[in-house]
């Protein structure tokens, strides 16, 4: 391959002579030749002082026209004088946290940043200036998963679990007589979630009710995010979408209710308080 990186033969020979394995020597020799090529292009290599981050960011902004947060020189703590080994004293840290919160102090460790603050947090990956990536997302009002979310989930799980247990204790699942292909029962219904389809079967040819309509509904459902181009998620901005979906759900719900409760023997219309409930879960 033409663009395979060449080996710097000189370095390779020297490393082999020093007793390095050939694999290591080859890797280092390749790196050396890359470094040489870069140096020839005038690209600076190696670690850079922190001020350069700010300069690079400025450069990026002016060339890309991007907005962005305020470049702070957090990379090189100039104020670290007092603390040993560049670490912050507790006071310095507290001051920095308070500053990043945009106010004097949050209520507790898990309270996060007030949603109203326009503080942004910035993930900055520093690579050669031409390739600076600036990823920004708005700081949101967040809480720790443990304990806040996990607690809510646990309670929800217990509530639904115990509800089901109580229900199962008092209500037995139905079991009719042995299946008999020669004896059509008087009341013959699909499970409730398919009753909408069975009800449609009353009005349309089976191919329309059983295949075409559910197929179209399914495709429309899957296509919804691609059809609905409205970027807003606020209810007041998407009245049409919400109305259409509500209509769809109501229509479907009514079909299921009719099919489940208002149809009896021979799938004829019944009033459950007169002829009894022809419905089994």
């Amino acid at each position: 391959m033409s663009d395979e990186v060449q080996i710097d033969q000189e370095v390779f020979d020297r490393l082999v002579a020093e007793g390095k394995s050939e694999r290591i020597a080859r890797a280092k020799a390749k790196a050396a030749s890359v470094r040489k090529a870069r140096a020839a292009e005038g690209v600076a290599l190696g670690p850079r002082p922190a001020e350069q981050a700010a300069t690079a960011l400025e450069e990026f902004r002016s060339s890309q026209g991007g907005g962005g947060g305020v470049a702070t020189k957090t990379a090189a703590p100039a104020d670290a004088g007092g603390a040993a080994g560049g670490r912050l004293t507790p006071d310095q840290r507290a001051a920095r946290v308070a500053a990043s919160l945009g106010n004097g102090g949050g209520e507790s460790a898990s309270m996060g940043v007030p949603a109203a603050s326009d503080h942004t947090h910035r993930l900055l990956a520093l690579v050669p200036p031409a390739g600076i990536q600036q990823v920004q997302s708005k700081q949101m009002d967040k809480v720790y998963t443990w304990p806040h979310l996990l607690l809510v989930e646990f309670v929800a799980l217990l509530a639904v679990g115990s509800l089901l247990l109580v229900m199962s204790f008092f209500l037995d699942a139905p079991l009719g007589s042995l299946a008999n292909p020669n004896e059509v029962p008087a009341i013959n219904k699909a499970p409730w979630y398919f009753m909408g389809l069975q009800e449609l079967l009353r009005y349309f040819h089976p191919m329309v009710a059983g295949v075409t309509l559910p197929g179209v509904a399914l495709v429309l459902l899957m296509a919804a995010p691609y059809v609905d181009k409205n970027p807003s998620a606020r209810p007041e901005n998407r009245k049409v979408a919400n109305l259409a979906f509500t209509f769809f759900l109501t229509f479907w719900g009514i079909l299921v209710i009719i099919g489940s409760f208002l149809r009896g023997a021979g799938y004829e219309w019944v009033w459950p308080w007169v002829q009894g409930l022809g419905f089994t879960l």
Binding site: P174, L175, G176, A179, P181, V184, P185, N188, A190, P191
Partner: peptide
């Protein structure tokens, strides 16, 4: 495999 099962599935 009771009547309920057989005929509900037949409809479907």
């Amino acid at each position: 495999w009771d009547q309920l099962a057989l005929w509900a599935v037949t409809v479907g």
